[in-house]
Amino acid sequence: MSMGQEDEPTVGQLVANASRDLSSLVRSEIELGKAELKKTAVKAGTGAGLFGGAAFLGLLAIILLSVAAAYGVSALGLHPALAFLIVAVVYLLIAAVLVLIGKKQLGQAKGPQRAIETSKESVEALKAVGKGD
């Protein structure tokens, strides 16, 4: 053996080095992904918390506006109990309309028609292959 051949790595060493480098690269990519996902999760959690706070304040505003509307109706000369009842009935009517619209939308919703159809075709094709057709 000459000196030049001793310095060159064997195929086994090359494969081991490549495997080690690939493993290190994969681990590094996974760590990078974890770090990015952690930052994204923190931002998403903060955003969700802020939306929750906004929804709570919106609910409080609706309650206060409802009370104000009832007192406004009461200022027209109606008894306060009747004014609050009128505001409640208006909300119930709005809720009923929303329910009817929602029911109509749900009735129009259909399942994944194309996926079901292609699945049935695949089953038929596999049955045909199984029978030897």
Score class of each variant (00 low, 15 high):
13 Q>F: 08
14 L>C: 06
14 L>T: 04
15 V>P: 01
18 A>K: 11
18 A>T: 08
18 A>D: 01
18 A>V: 07
19 S>R: 13
19 S>F: 11
19 S>E: 14
20 R>V: 10
20 R>I: 13
21 D>Q: 14
21 D>H: 08
22 L>Y: 10
23 S>M: 13
23 S>V: 09
24 S>F: 09
24 S>V: 04
26 V>M: 12
29 E>G: 07
31 E>W: 11
32 L>P: 01
32 L>T: 12
33 G>V: 10
34 K>R: 12
35 A>E: 07
36 E>R: 07
37 L>M: 15
38 K>C: 01
38 K>R: 13
39 K>L: 07
39 K>Y: 01
41 A>K: 06
43 K>P: 00
43 K>S: 06
44 A>F: 12
44 A>M: 13
45 G>V: 04
45 G>E: 05
46 T>S: 08
47 G>N: 10
48 A>V: 02
49 G>S: 03
50 L>D: 04
50 L>E: 11
50 L>M: 11
51 F>G: 03
52 G>C: 02
52 G>H: 00
52 G>N: 03
53 G>A: 08
54 A>E: 01
54 A>R: 04
54 A>W: 04
54 A>G: 04
54 A>K: 07
55 A>R: 01
58 G>K: 03
59 L>F: 08
60 L>P: 00
62 I>V: 14
62 I>H: 09
62 I>F: 14
62 I>Y: 13
63 I>H: 06
63 I>D: 02
63 I>C: 02
64 L>A: 09
65 L>G: 06
65 L>D: 06
67 V>P: 01
68 A>M: 14
68 A>D: 13
69 A>K: 15
69 A>I: 05
72 G>K: 14
72 G>L: 10
75 A>F: 13
75 A>R: 02
78 L>P: 00
80 P>H: 15
80 P>D: 02
80 P>W: 15
82 L>R: 05
82 L>C: 01
82 L>W: 12
83 A>V: 05
84 F>R: 05
84 F>K: 03
85 L>A: 14
86 I>W: 10
86 I>C: 06
86 I>F: 15
87 V>S: 08
89 V>F: 12
89 V>Q: 04
91 Y>Q: 14
